[in-house]
Design a protein around this nucleic acid. Sequence first.
DNA 1: CAGAAACGATTGACGCGTCAACCAGTACGG
DNA 2: CCGTACTGGTTGACGCGTCAATCGTTTCTG
Lengths: 161, 161
Amino acid sequence: MSETPEWLDETQEAAWAGLRAVLFRAFPEMERTLKAHGLLAVHYHIFVSLSSAPDRTLRLSDLADAADMSQSRLTHRMRSLVKRGEVAITEDPDDGRAKNATLTDLGQSRLDELAPLHIADVRRLLFDPLTDEQTAALADAVTTIADHLCEHPEFLNPQSG
Amino acid sequence: MSETPEWLDETQEAAWAGLRAVLFRAFPEMERTLKAHGLLAVHYHIFVSLSSAPDRTLRLSDLADAADMSQSRLTHRMRSLVKRGEVAITEDPDDGRAKNATLTDLGQSRLDELAPLHIADVRRLLFDPLTDEQTAALADAVTTIADHLCEHPEFLNPQSG
DNA sequence: CAGAAACGATTGACGCGTCAACCAGTACGG
DNA sequence: CCGTACTGGTTGACGCGTCAATCGTTTCTG
């Protein structure tokens, strides 16, 4: 993959263009379904992360990491979620700096009602056209990339993780 | 891939999580390099799209499509690019509604200087950890998804493409 | 050759995310 | 202990993207 280190080869170019199309076309489309129900994609991923955590509770910094968002972005979004009673925030008794976020019953029920709609979008826009082999290969590739990012945090800006 | 149509299987879940990680971690990181040089990723993709077009010129609506962005987003970004002299806009002589965008020499030189930096980021964050086989499989999968999106525009919101 | 529908592009209000401070609490080093 | 560095989280300004509405132009239809 590396005759000319300054440019992408044809395969890489195709992967790069395809990824951009997926991210800039499919993702926004999925978010529209959620928006029609008063939720951002970010909100949804917060719900999912909390829902699958023990006691539906996560330290805020861990939540930001689980939901692939920056710390300050999480803080901003939390304002409305707490106000709407879908998430509750409590001080961590062991560490005066930390806070824990808990998905309330209301939040869980919001997730339960939206998950099928969102999953349907994900299937329709991403996985329906793929064979099982293509899906497996896609999962393999993006997981490798994601793992590599986590293993090399020096590649990433401090704010973002 | 479809025993339970309401939920994702394990492989799909992995692909979905990996794609989110790529979108929300790798892409913003790449954009930071461009921002350090006064450009958004959107600007860069506008430059690339124009640069590879005949006469470095594209009708605005085609440009929006090539750069994976909405029409109105393009209009907003064009303001600064034109003001900075990196892109020029002319009326289309054949169709009174349309306008054409042309990459100026200044814009081309901006692209020439930034492309190596950006390509290096793309390689470092996306392709370096992948084998040639993984890269090819990734390209195959995302291209299939992207083609499917184009073939089914009814899946997409009118504004987005 | 009207009238209606569709197209290409623009606008402005609004909400969101980034970034660079910032504050408080905790851990570490002498 | 005390000061320093670090960690967890917050804040507000600012620029960006979305969305719905709009305008002028072109194309379709009878």
